[in-house]
Simulated assay, not measured.
Amino acid sequence: MAQNNTHRAFGRAITPVGTTGRALRNTGGAAVLGTVVIGSALLAGPAQAAPAVSPAAPTISAQTAAPATPAPAHAGSAFGTEKLRWGSQGASVEQLQTALNEHGTSLDVDGKFGKLTHGAVKDFQRSHDLQVDGVVGPETKGALNGGGATASGGGTSAPAPASSSSSSGQAIVDAARSQIGASYSWGTSKPGVSFDCSGLSSFAYAQAGIDLPRTSSQQEAAGTTISKSEAQPGDLVVWPGHLGIYAGGDTVIDAGRTPGAVTERTIWGNPTFVTFR
Rank of each mutant, 00 (worst) to 15 (best):
S217H: 05
T251K: 11
S198C: 11
G146P: 07
T224V: 01
E230K: 08
S167G: 04
S201T: 15
G249W: 04
S216T: 10
Q232V: 02
V193W: 06
A160M: 11
A151W: 05
G169N: 05
K228H: 10
G209L: 11
G249V: 05
S216R: 02
D211V: 09
G154P: 00
A176T: 07
V193C: 03
S217M: 00
S201R: 07
S198W: 02
A162V: 15
S178C: 10
A231Q: 08
S194H: 04
G234M: 03
A162N: 14
T215F: 04
S178R: 12
G199T: 06
L243D: 04
A175M: 06
P213I: 02
A222E: 04
G148I: 14
S165N: 12
G192H: 14
A175E: 02
G181V: 09
S165E: 11
A162P: 14
L236F: 04
S227D: 05
S157V: 13
T156C: 06
A158P: 10
F195L: 10
A160W: 03
Q218E: 11
S183N: 12
I226L: 07
A221E: 12
L212W: 09
T156N: 12
S189Y: 06
I226G: 00
S198Q: 10
A175H: 03
P240W: 07
P159K: 15
P233A: 07
A176V: 04
S201P: 03
L243T: 02
R214G: 00
L200H: 02
S163H: 13
L243F: 03
T188D: 07
S229V: 00
E220H: 11
V238E: 02
A231H: 06
D250T: 13
S189V: 03
T251P: 00
S202P: 01
A162D: 15
V237Q: 03
A151G: 10
G148T: 12
P161I: 14
T251A: 08
S185H: 10
S183M: 10
I245T: 14
V173A: 05
S163T: 15
A171E: 12
G209T: 13
S185L: 12
G192I: 05
S167I: 15
S167V: 14
P240M: 11
S229N: 03
G154L: 13
G249A: 11
G192S: 08
P233V: 03
A182T: 13
G248P: 05
G223W: 01
G234T: 02
Q232T: 06
R177F: 10
G244D: 06
L200V: 03
T150A: 07
I226P: 01
S163Q: 12
S201D: 07
G248V: 10
D211C: 03
S189G: 14
P213H: 05
S217E: 06
A231W: 01
S185E: 13
